[in-house]
Design a binder for these strands. Structure first.
Length: 468
RNA sequence: GGCGCGAUGGCCGAGCGGUUAGGCAGAGGUCUGCAAAACCUCGUACAGCGGUUCAACUCCGCUUCGCGCCUCCA
């Protein structure tokens, strides 16, 4: 299995620190607003990563932080006139609900920044001890970038060439150097009652320090993987790395992985541009979580992905085809137990699927293998050359693929025996109409069933009814 | 200005120095009372210009266009 490691800018064989365990830290949301589906691209990406690791036999220990104190959450809570926690909690809840909607498997721990201030303070003290931190006159604490020669190794940025743009150092005159960043921010009036005591006076933690402190607390001073959106590469991850390694003197993370942005009309989807959709916006338009998930995983994670409604429509049709296939397999399998060996063609597609996935999470290629399986499987079913045990085995394979993909809808009920009385009645009436070649009546009954939400298909062995 | 990505058929989107990506949409067919589902067939896609090579969508250079980051954005 290999992943593209941003640290070295090429793919590397994945070797975990502890046997079949994989420890991974994922930068989570800042809970000042509803996350949009651009944000969720990052979470479906890390989900595919974790699922792939599990699929490959790793035991995954994942931590995702919740940033619940920063400029935006403070501003929001003050505007709303409620305490910080009361302001952020609904967005935390919404975030978790959205994760479920997108079938993103939960992390083991979701530490909140506000619950880990002591750990952050302790870490800052270590940085002082190592000569990497200093405080300014106003009581803020900064990281001294110049004291860490390796600074810049992740983002590959040369600080001396930094453009002095609008975003640089407008409010931070206290720093020794523009590259220095806040570890601890002294309280000011705009913080209201959001403040913690520290050896340097009242204030609040800087943004980056929470991930260093919480990552180390839950995963150790060195762990395997760290994920996030590409926009977190700099400054956030660079700074996180500097703080962590500056404090411990050990490597912080072995593999850094970043996903590209979701775009709308060729531009990054972002709150500041206003060109975003939240998950609830899209659900309200009638799209399902798994359809959106499919759209989000259907491009390679390191490639920008253009969001279009046509793509969501295509996802719906594609998924229906996969669902249909799995239903047909279930029907053909009946009660048979899966054969110990897959049919040869199915085994070949499993290999393709695994190879694609294990090569830096190439989901588009893995999906191509799935569709190849669908086509060949349907052909086999049509020719009735697939014995029940073979159908069961192939269906198990689809389920196995879906451990990673998380998009298939299994077990839709369609057996005639379980129909509501009214539906069963119409089906029987239609059977008689067909028998007597009363096509007009048969068509009328079919339309009526559709109105009731049931699809009828005529086959060699009579009618098949499915819930729409 | 610095660093970095990208340009693939109607849409989405992989990929590789020589062999079909895949999905959706569209056209034709098989099956069917019709439909649906399924299957089969169908598109001389690789931004432009040069170069390397027996061979380039794939490597190199240039051009055009687009995008991202450059100090609290996933």
């Amino acid at each position: 299995m290999q992943f593209y490691n941003t640290l070295v800018r090429h793919k590397e064989i994945f070797r975990s620190l502890a046997g079949r365990q994989a420890r991974i830290y994922t930068c989570g949301p800042t809970v000042y607003n509803f996350a949009h589906i651009g944000n969720f691209r990052a979470y479906t990406f890390e989900d595919i990563l974790c699922r792939t690791l599990r699929y490959a036999g790793y035991e995954v220990q994942q931590v995702m932080n919740l940033t619940d104190v920063d400029d935006k959450t403070i501003r929001g809570s003050r505007q709303a006139g409620v305490p910080l926690k009361a302001f952020t909690q609904p967005f935390v809840d919404a975030f978790f609900a959205d994760l479920r909607t997108l079938n993103i498997e939960p992390a083991a721990v979701y530490p909140a920044a506000t619950d880990h201030v002591p750990e952050m303070i302790a870490l800052i003290q270590r940085l002082f001890a190592n000569g990497l931190a200093y405080h300014s006159e106003d009581g803020s604490v900064y990281f001294k970038v110049a004291a860490l020669p390796a600074y810049g190794k992740l983002a590959h940025l040369d600080l001396s060439s930094l453009r002095t743009g609008a975003r640089v150092a407008q409010d931070e005159y206290e720093k020794e150097s523009v590259g220095d960043f806040a570890l601890w921010k002294a309280w000011d009036a705009s913080d209201g009652d959001v403040a913690w005591d520290s050896p340097w006076g009242r204030g609040r933690p800087g943004w980056h320090i929470e991930c260093s402190a919480m990552g180390m607390k839950y995963l150790g001073e060195t762990f395997d993987l760290h994920t996030g959106g590409i926009d977190n590469l700099f400054p956030h991850h660079e700074n996180e790395l500097a703080q962590s390694e500056g404090a411990t003197g050990k490597p912080f993370v072995n593999y850094w992985m970043h996903c590209a942005h979701l775009r709308v009309n060729g531009e990054k989807m972002s709150k500041s541009l206003g060109n975003f959709f939240t998950l609830r916006d899209l659900l309200a338009k009638g799209y399902a979580g798994r359809e959106l998930r499919y759209v989000l995983i259907n491009g390679h994670y390191r490639q920008p992905l253009n969001f279009t409604f046509e793509a969501v429509e295509a996802a719906r049709t594609s998924l229906a085809r996969i669902d249909e296939f799995s239903d047909r397999l279930a029907e053909a399998a009946r009660t048979a137990t899966p054969a110990p060996e897959l049919p040869e063609w199915a085994a070949a597609y499993r290999n393709l699927f695994n190879t694609a996935l294990f090569d830096d999470l190439n989901v588009p290629e893995a999906l191509a293998a799935l569709f190849a399986l669908v086509r060949e499987g349907n052909t086999a079913l049509q020719a009735t050359v697939l014995p029940p045990s073979g159908a069961a085995a192939v269906r198990a394979l689809v389920a196995d693929f879906d451990r990673v993909l998380g998009v298939v809808s299994f077990g839709r009920r369609g057996a005639n025996g379980e129909l509501p009385a009214k539906v069963a009645q119409l089906v029987e009436a239609r059977r008689i109409a067909r028998q007597t070649k009363n096509w007009a009546e048969a068509d009328r009954l079919r339309d009526e069933l559709v109105r009731l939400g049931w699809e009828v298909r005529d086959g060699k062995d009579g009618q098949k009814v499915k819930k729409l």
